[in-house]
Design a protein around this nucleic acid. Structure first.
Lengths: 256, 256
DNA sequence: TGAAAGGTTTCACTAGACGAAACTTTGTTT
DNA sequence: AAACAAAGTTTCGTCTAGTGAAACCTTTCA
């Protein structure tokens, strides 16, 4: 993100503190925040105090640690419901889901995690029941592979440098193998998931491009190995997922 | 929220700008933000610039308006997954869902809206398919009634002063009727929803108390009128929902 | 085409943010 | 129980970052 020449440093520090909280770090003490953000303890104290009084942080009186407050929840809900591509994509997801009679999802990439932002379910429960906000490891999911494949090379290299954990014995986590896989994904324009996230589950994903010709999201069709034999996955679903992804991308202003 | 004597005004202004965005206001121009936040246009420009460079706002190049960015999404996801009572409540929701063989939900109150924060679904699709982050009008839902019933009186009066819209012909929106209903809810310790949110749907809700003896959330059991006859709602479900809510409350440190 | 509105940049001023130091509270060790 | 360490809170002096007016630029509208 390009740095603005008109930035307010205090605000930026406050946002930096908010950004410390994530899935792995749900509560922090004043000292932990000071250390993690490399701030003076008085500065950290003031920032936390301000965030708390605005409802963005709340303090657990027992553990004495801070965690995101309801205000952050509200903002998150607002952001989810206002995501442009989510709104634009919705009808296409429904149409594809009806067309292929499987569950269709939309997600974004956050670090090495896929975050689900929308879902149209087949009228049946399938393996992983994932709601909006759910996360899966990027390397294990079809949408994760698609979004990783379209990262700038240096960004991708950085993310692949960490140790990747498999989700099933079929997960591709070896460095060389995953690079080859992502090359394949770029070339064919879609990614497959053949029981790599969960045994018994298959999926096909394709990238969503926006008007700046960047991949901003991915969609996939997912279902049981019983309803999605390998041949169906590659011959019927892959073309349809790609086509739907292109339609969504064009609706978002993608030119080519 | 009590105001801190150690607040950072710039940070507070930035958070104030972020708070302008909600379900009804998903995009705003610089001028609209300046006006809404009562800020100098240069100050507003700097705040927006800072939020944008940090990923909390993004600008739609076509409409030239700002909306919450991915960073806000990430924070929202973090906040949802880190909600303490959600984590504590989860096993109880599962147990109750299995016990009564219906969908069980957990929610919080945000203004006059119920926001779903967790859900354990019966293995079947039921009427409203609501994911986490979904909102319904408080007056139409059993959980809404429960949380409204336990607001401080002046807070409740303020919220009831606005015009309430019905969701079905059975929704209780008349001022006198809803006050009577909330009194009943306080007395019996649970709320019923008899096709007030959606025709064909029934629900029973009870309040979740925390260690400070405040109602922080509510749970409910919901299902079809076919699987939940009125007698079952009152004789089987209400006691079990109340009992589960008490167990969750006690797990959260509620004393009395 | 010109005016108005919205947005961006510059500049001078000072109020607010900073961090060190001191103090208080809480937790740990002996 | 006492001493010590760590964490958190409050105070104070310094100075720079944040403010808002003014000027300028761009876009929109009549």
């Amino acid at each position: 993100m390009p740095q603005s020449p008109y930035q307010i440093e205090s605000l930026l520090r406050g946002l930096q503190v908010l950004s410390l909280f994530n899935r792995d770090t749900s509560a922090l003490s004043l000292t932990e925040i000071k250390d993690a953000a490399k701030l003076n303890k008085t500065t950290a104290f003031r920032i936390i105090s301000t965030l708390e009084s605005a409802g963005y942080l709340e303090r657990n009186p027992e553990t004495k640690k801070y965690r995101p407050g309801l205000k952050v929840l509200q903002l998150g809900f607002t952001a989810i419901s206002s995501l442009e591509f989510r709104q634009v994509a919705r009808p296409y997801l429904r149409q594809l889901s009806q067309n292929v009679d499987e569950t269709v999802s939309l997600s974004v990439l956050d670090g090495m995690e896929v975050v689900y932002v929308d879902r149209v379910r087949k009228q049946q429960i399938v393996g992983v029941v994932l709601g909006i906000g759910s996360r899966i490891p990027a390397q294990c999911g079809s949408m994760g592979k698609v979004m990783l494949a379209h990262l700038p090379p240096e960004d991708l290299a950085q993310r692949l440098s960490q140790t990747l954990t498999p989700c099933t014995p079929y997960s591709i986590v070896d460095q060389t193998a995953i690079e080859a896989e992502l090359t394949r994904v770029r070339q064919q324009g879609y990614a497959l998931n053949d029981e790599e996230l969960e045994i018994g589950l298959r999926a096909v994903a394709a990238p969503i491009w926006d008007h700046t010709n960047h991949v901003v999201a991915a969609i996939n069709v997912t279902g049981s190995v019983r309803t999605i034999p390998r041949q169906r996955m590659m011959e019927e679903l892959a073309p349809k997922v790609r086509e739907t992804a292109v339609q969504i991308s064009q609706a978002l202003g993608y030119g080519g």
